[in-house]
Amino acid sequence: MAIKINYDLCTKCKTCYTRCPEDVFTWREDKTPVVTYPYECWYCGSCYIDCPEGAITMDHPLFMRFVPEPYEYKNKTIIKREY
């Protein structure tokens, strides 16, 4: 969850690691950014906006998402009453 890095696109420029206001990234010894503290992400979008390669996407956790309204049930239960 939180932030996903596409390492095929990442050029290791450190922008995400440098700018993150909640310091969720660490810089690994093999010179790549790692999302070490995903639970501290504020979803401000700074890494996503500022990544020059477009290598970052935000993946909001289930509890933060919008349930569309109107919503189309996928598994609606059929109810029959015996009273």
Partner: peptide, 19 residues
């Protein structure tokens, strides 16, 4: 910016959906 990203991923649009 993150909100609009979230809406897009959820298929939610101001024109057609209530939030």
């Amino acid at each position: 910016y993150a909100l609009l990203h979230l809406m897009k991923n959820a298929g939610v649009d101001f024109r057609t959906h209530k939030l």
